[in-house]
């Protein structure tokens, strides 16, 4: 307690910071955990007795199907981001330093611009009489308009469009750290290109891959406005379910349980990411 009186400034800062985090981060999260094991109540949202009904409801075939479909779309989004982002980050790390600053800047511009507006912009392109269909028809590639909007594909396109920079940035940072000597060493030891890629490049860039997956996969399950604008009612994300349960159906325990599902997924990915980083650290690389 001596330090408290001796350093009033330090004490004030710590109280403020801790107070904020305890009240607005820890307490709310505990409330959600609490709500998930309570009984649904139309009047006060939740009430006793304690029950695991909400978690049982997660396994209800109807919702299970929605969750699996959401996971599928999120996984496809992550995969597409990885396939586009990996070579992209590689190529980016090879560009000269001067241009790199500009290119990175161009990459984070979308991050700073309104994601809702950008999702809406995609609608202009993908709509039945939108730019893509009109363009392809006037070129004679297709005879009639394709149904692009309100499909699973549209949701994935929207998610990829919003989340791609989040995949590229961590990948770029691992490629930046990738030292040329390792590649040369691998070559000198007789490894071919493919072998170098599999045994040197992939393991060394793995933390970046996992960080990218973490930054894409989870938001891809939560961004409810993307299906709302592009996907129609059949292509829902976990985020849509949570939102409906909290704001429309007023089934808080179920919404809370679904959100805990997402949190657990996050914890798992963070753990995997740490593990991969540590492993590389131990090898002295």
């Amino acid at each position: 307690m001596r330090s408290l009186t001796q350093q009033p400034f330090r004490a004030a800062v710590l109280v403020l910071v801790w107070g904020w985090l305890l009240f607005l981060v820890l307490t709310p999260n505990l409330l959600v955990v609490g709500a998930s094991v309570m009984t649904r109540d139309p009047g006060s949202f939740i009430s006793l007795p304690l029950t695991l009904d909400a978690y049982r409801q997660l396994l209800d075939p109807l919702y299970l199907e929605v969750f699996l479909h959401s996971l599928y779309m999120a996984a496809m989004t992550t995969l597409v981001c990885l396939l586009i982002g990996y070579p992209f980050a590689w190529a980016l790390s090879k560009v000269g330093k001067r241009n790199q600053v500009l290119l990175i800047f161009l990459l984070i511009v979308p991050f700073w611009t309104n994601s809702l507006v950008r999702t809406y912009a995609l609608k202009l392109i993908l709509a039945t009489n939108g730019l893509l269909n009109n363009g392809l028809m006037s070129l004679g590639v297709i005879d009639g308009p394709m149904q692009l909007l309100y499909t699973e594909g549209a949701v994935i396109i929207g998610l990829v469009y919003l989340l791609l920079p989040f995949m590229i940035l961590p990948l770029y940072s691992v490629f930046e750290d990738l030292r040329e000597d390792y590649l040369r060493a691998s070559h000198d030891l007789g490894a071919g290109r493919l072998s170098t890629f599999i045994h040197v490049i992939v393991p060394l860039t793995l933390p970046g891959v996992l960080a990218g997956i973490m930054l894409v996969l989870l938001p891809a399950m939560g961004l409810f406005f993307v299906p709302d604008i592009l996907g129609g009612s059949r292509n829902l994300l976990v985020g849509n379910v949570i939102k409906n349960q909290f704001l429309d159906a007023r089934n808080w325990p179920f919404g809370a349980a679904a959100s805990i599902l997402l949190t657990l997924a996050m914890a798992f990915l963070m753990f995997a990411h740490r593990l991969s980083k540590r492993r590389i650290g131990e090898d002295g690389v």
Binding site: L21, L31, V32, L218, F246, L262
Partner: peptide
């Protein structure tokens, strides 16, 4: 403290959103 800040940054926005609504 560090960990809590990291969790806020990484957790899906919607998780933060409903926890704050509950509070």
């Amino acid at each position: 403290l560090n960990g809590m800040l990291f969790v806020v940054m990484m957790s899906p926005e919607i998780v933060l959103a409903i926890s704050l609504l509950a509070l």
